[in-house]
């Protein structure tokens, strides 16, 4: 499992609605977590629903901000500004690098 994950590039998608404080915080937090735990193996796509509202339906977005882990499967969703690192990692199913 760990090996598989290690090989894959993580595709993460962050849904935001404009440059709200929560969205900005979430993106900053996400980048921080990824740099720390998934360095070089991740891709972040930020979708602004104010610009592309039709995209909200596809990933069943209700809450803003929402982080969606597209790859690896299965899809997982994390809502909130990602300020709680532990829960983000649990949510993304990433084991902290320190333990790795």
């Amino acid at each position: 499992m760990a090996e598989e994950n290690d090989d894959e590039t993580w595709e993460l998608r962050l849904y935001v609605a404009g440059q709200t404080p929560k969205s900005v915080t979430a993106l900053a937090n996400l980048k921080k977590h990824c740099e720390q735990h998934l360095k070089g193996r991740y891709k972040i796509e930020v979708i602004d629903l104010l610009a592309n509202p039709q995209l909200a339906e596809g990933d069943q977005i209700l809450a803003i901000p929402t982080l969606v882990r597209k790859v690896p499967e299965p899809i997982r969703k994390i809502i909130g500004d990602l300020s709680n690192e532990e829960r983000v990692l649990v949510g993304l199913d990433v084991r902290p690098l320190t333990r790795n």
């Binding site: 849904y15 929560k22 969703k77 994390i78």
Partner: peptide
């Protein structure tokens, strides 16, 4: 499917 990690709203 949903993990809560901080502040959010239902703007979506």
């Amino acid at each position: 499917e949903i993990e809560e990690t901080g502040e959010y709203d239902l703007e979506g």
